[in-house]
Design a binder for these strands. Structure first.
Lengths: 339, 339
DNA sequence: TTGTACGCGTTATCAT
DNA sequence: ATGATAACGCGTACAA
C-alpha cells in the first residue's frame, strides 16, 4: 500500500547555500555555532535549512573532524548477561544518561560470536567511535587487545582479567560481603557458612574474602562450600552438602541471589525454616530476591552508577585527563526477611 | 603506571601504498576483494598492511560508499524494558545474529530522554546507519517520524501505534491467547476468568480478544478484570477482586506471567490451591514462570525469532525487495503444573 | 562578516 | 593489472 518511492536524496550544505543565497562556509559556521554570522544570513539559513530538511552528514563530519562524538558500549557473553543478569540494564541506562548529558551518542555493540569479534574489532579500529565502555571482558579478549593497541580511551565495568592499563569501575565485593555477613552475625547466628561461587572470577573470590574478614577468628573453612556457577541449582546442591556436613548450621551467606534461592529450596526440603532455623542472605538484589519466601536480605549493586562512572571515565580521558585506574563503588544492604 | 603515550596516528591507504610500493588504487582493490590484483602485488600489500597495522577508516568509507553497513536497533522506554521485559534480550540477540550473518554491524541506540530523541534523530538523519529496527515504538514517536520521512528501511518489533507504512513483526497474541485458554478449558474448568492488562496496548487487547474467542458463547464479561499494567501487584489485587465477585471461579488466564504470579499469591492467601481449586495460566514464559509454586503454564514468545525476522525485513529492503507489511509469529504453549 | 580553496581517507572511473 | 584523479560532504585557514 505504501507509496514506497525512491529514497529522497539527502540535502547537503550546497543545497542550503543555494537556497539561502550564501556560501557553504557560512552555512557551516552557522551550524557549528560560530558567532561570526550576520543576523540576515542567519535568518536566510534557518529558513533554507527548514525548507530543504538539511542535517549534516555524519560520515563527512567524522572524516574531517577526526572524531565521532559517539562511544561504544561493548557487551560479551550476552546470553547469560541479557537473560539473567539484572544489572546490565541499569549499567546501560546509567552509561547512556551520562553520555547523553555530554551530548555523546552511545552505541551498544554485542559480541556473540567469532564473527562479531572481528567485526567489532574492525569497527573500533576504523575509528567509528571515540572511546569504549566494556562490560564483562574475558581473559585475553581480542576486543580488549584492540582497544589497548589503539590506545582507545576506555573503561571497563568489572575487573578486566588481563592486567590492562585501562581504567575500570567495580563494586566493592569484599567490603559488601563483609558488611552483610556481619549483619547476619549480629542476628545471633553461631554457625554461619557460605556458599561461595565462581571462585575463579574476581567477584567470587572477593566475596569469599569479605566473608572471612567478617568471621575473623571464628572462620571455619569446612563451613564454606564452593560451587562453580552463580546458579539456582548450584545453591541447592551446595546447601544439601552443607546440611549433611553441618546439621547445626544456622546461617548462610550465598554468593548470589540465585544461589540463595536454591539454598532456601534445599532448606525447605530439609524442613528447616527461614529465618527461624537458619538465616540466609544473598548478593545482587536481582529479581530472585523479591520472589523467594520469605524475601531475601541481600546486597544491592548500584548498577546505574557503575554505568555512569564508566562513562565519566571515558569522557574524562577524551578531555585529556588521566583517569584513576580504579573506581570502587559501595553497595547498599537490603534487609528483608530471610535473615 | 601505564605509559599513556599519545594516541598513535592511524595508518592510511597512503602509508600502505608507500611501504608496498604500489598505488593507492591497488591497495583499495585488494582490500575490497577485486580480482584484478597480481600475486606479487598481493603479497607486498599483505606484508605492508600487517607492518603498518592498517584498517580502513570507517568514516571515509561511508562517505564515498554512501552506506555504512550498519543498522540501528532502537529501544524506547528502556526502564521498563531492560529491567522487566524478559524478551528484549532475546530480540537483541536474534537481530544481532541475523545482521552478523549478513556482515552488518548492529548499533543499539537507547532513547531515554528528550535529549536522546533529538540526538538519535540527528544520528539517523545524518546517515550513520542504513536501516533501523525499532522496538516498542510509541504513538506519535519523533524517531518513527524521522524514519518515515527519510524513508529509511525499517522494521518494527510490535505493532507501531501510528499507522506507519513500515513493516513490522509481531507475535500472534490473539491466537496464542485463544490456544492457551482452550487448553485451560480442556482441563475441565467451568468458570474461567481473565485478568486483562494494558488494554490500551495492542498486545493487551489482542490477548483479551483471544480469550473471548476461546470462550465463545460461554464468555462472561464480569469474569474479566482489567488492570492497567503487566505487573505482579496488579495481578494480586485483580485476583482478589475476582474472588470477591466470583468465589466459584476455577480458572484464570493472566495476561502476563508477572500478573499470574500476583494472582497465585492472592489465591494462596485466600486458601485456594493451584491447580487443585483453580487453574492458572500466564503469558511470556518469563523468569516468573519457573519460580512460581507450582511452575506456571504459559505461552513462550519466540523472542530471538522476532529479532531475526525484524533484521531480515530490514536487510531485504536494503536489497530492494519490498517486504511483507506484517510478519506474524506463532508462540509455543508451555504446559507446566499450574493448570 | 563572508567567500574560496584545501584536505580528511576512501572508492571508482578512466586511461594506460 | 595498475596508476592518476575525481568525487563523497564537511570544517576551516586564509584572503578579502
Amino acid at each position: 500500500m505504501s507509496a514506497n518511492g525512491p529514497r529522497p536524496r539527502r540535502a547537503t550544505v550546497h543545497d542550503v547555500a543555494v537556497v539561502a543565497g550564501v556560501s557553504r562556509g557560512t552555512i557551516s559556521r552557522y551550524v557549528n555555532g560560530d558567532p561570526y554570522v550576520s543576523a540576515s544570513a542567519r535568518e536566510a539559513i534557518e529558513a533554507a535549512i527548514a525548507q530543504v530538511g538539511y542535517v549534516p552528514n555524519t560520515a563527512a563530519r567524522h572524516l574531517v573532524m577526526q572524531r565521532t562524538e559517539s562511544i561504544a558500549f561493548i557487551v560479551h557473553e550476552p546470553h547469560s548477561l541479557f537473560v539473567d543478569d539484572p544489572n546490565i540494564g541499569g549499567i546501560l541506562l546509567g552509561a547512556n544518561a551520562a553520555l547523553s548529558d555530554a551530548d555523546h551518542q552511545m552505541a551498544v555493540l554485542i559480541v556473540d560470536s567469532e564473527r562479531d569479534t572481528d567485526r567489532v574489532a574492525r569497527y573500533l579500529s576504523g575509528g567509528a567511535v571515540d572511546g569504549a565502555i566494556i562490560v564483562s571482558a574475558r581473559a585475553n579478549d581480542p576486543v580488549g587487545r584492540v582497544v589497548e593497541r589503539l590506545k582507545l580511551p576506555a573503561a571497563f565495568v568489572g575487573h578486566p582479567p588481563g592486567a590492562t592499563s585501562a581504567a575500570f569501575v567495580v563494586i566493592d565485593n569484599r567490603g559488601s560481603a563483609r558488611t552483610i555477613t556481619e549483619r547476619l552475625l549480629a542476628t545471633g547466628r553461631r554457625r554461619v557458612g557460605m556458599i561461595a561461587a565462581a571462585l575463579d572470577r574476581d567477584s567470587g573470590s572477593e566475596r569469599l574474602a569479605g566473608f572471612t574478614d567478617a568471621l575473623g577468628a571464628r572462620f571455619d573453612p569446612d563451613l564454606v562450600e564452593p560451587v562453580p556457577l552463580y546458579s539456582y541449582s548450584s545453591g541447592r546442591t551446595a546447601m544439601e552438602a552443607l546440611l549433611r556436613r553441618h546439621p547445626e548450621i544456622d546461617g548462610v551467606f550465598a554468593a548470589s541471589d540465585a544461589v540463595a534461592a536454591g539454598a532456601m529450596e534445599a532448606l525447605r526440603a530439609a524442613g528447616r525454616s527461614v529465618p527461624g532455623d537458619v538465616g540466609v542472605v544473598g548478593f545482587d538484589d536481582s529479581a530472585w530476591a523479591g520472589r523467594t519466601l520469605p524475601p531475601l536480605s541481600t546486597v544491592r549493586q548500584p548498577a546505574e552508577d557503575l554505568g555512569r562512572h564508566a562513562a565519566a571515565l571515558v569522557l574524562g580521558q577524551l578531555r585529556g585527563e588521566s583517569p584513576p585506574r580504579e573506581v570502587l563503588l559501595e553497595c547498599e544492604v537490603i534487609w528483608r526477611e530471610s535473615a
